[in-house]
Design a protein around this nucleic acid. Structure first.
Lengths: 138, 138
DNA sequence: TAAAAACATGCAATCTGAGTGCATTATTGA
DNA sequence: TCAATAATGCACTCAGATTGCATGTTTTTA
């Protein structure tokens, strides 16, 4: 078990108070969070700082941005890669049109897609919209 | 060969001058267009009108919105369905990170994905980012 | 360890795209 | 032809994203 402080240091991020708090906040969330969501979880601290913090996390590879089609950027913690290679860039996200929550389905890999000649893929994103398990009651 | 006017009428859209122009503009484009792109193609006419026009087209099933992860909505003409059922919502989009153009790869269908229990899919969007054929030079 | 350099934070402000309200103009159909 | 209905244009509003700058804090280095 590595401390959050160490995780940040490992990513060349200075472990300030806000950063530690935000990391924990993201870690405790089962769903991707928008800047507004994050802001709501912090009485103290300022929108801009939270924004820059999340962007720092993103730049340093701690979180990835989730685009769920709502037009609002959300963020989720990267799961530490099990193998050598990060698999973060092959995501499947589920956006519930009922509760508006967006979940990373990291276990579900996107199957290989063959593209026309000349198209060089670098990143993939599969977004599925529908009703999530909590809302479907199943 | 059906006239554009007829296409619009068939979708319960009054064929005004702007609408005919915009339809042709979309038809002539190989890539999805943002409102800004469209605006640039029209010296005359007003942003709001173009916006409402594209939204009308969307509502009536003439175009579909493409979300390429840039945060800017783009639109592309629906290809006329060959079969009875429209398959517009299950093709993939390719966004070139070099030229910023987004292409509908209508021939490429999204493979079936099995979801965890309780997740009910209703719509899917597969976005692949990378370098397009024009930019890769291949 | 003090001073300089580098980075983090807070506040105010800007920018962009999306979307609406309303008055005017055009089109349609009784 | 006239009333009803829809389309257009202009002026806004709104939200989220992003930046500039002044200040505070940490790190580095002489």
């Amino acid at each position: 078990m590595v401390s959050i402080e160490q995780v940040l240091r490992d990513h060349q991020i200075r472990p300030t108070a806000i950063r530690l708090l935000m990391y924990r906040f993201l870690k405790d969330s089962q769903v991707a969070l928008s800047l507004n969501d994050i802001e709501s979880g912090f009485d103290q601290s300022e929108r801009t700082t939270l924004y820059r913090t999340i962007k720092t996390f993103e730049r340093k590879g701690l979180v990835h941005q989730v685009d769920d089609g709502t037009g609002v950027a959300k963020y989720a913690l990267d799961k530490p890669a099990n193998g050598k290679q990060s698999t973060q860039d092959l995501h499947l996200h589920f956006h519930c049109t009922n509760c508006n929550e967006t979940t990373c389905l990291t276990e579900h890999k996107i199957p290989h897609i063959s593209l026309p000649t000349g198209f060089i893929p670098e990143d993939m994103n599969l977004l599925i919209k529908g009703v999530c398990d909590k809302c479907s009651g199943q």
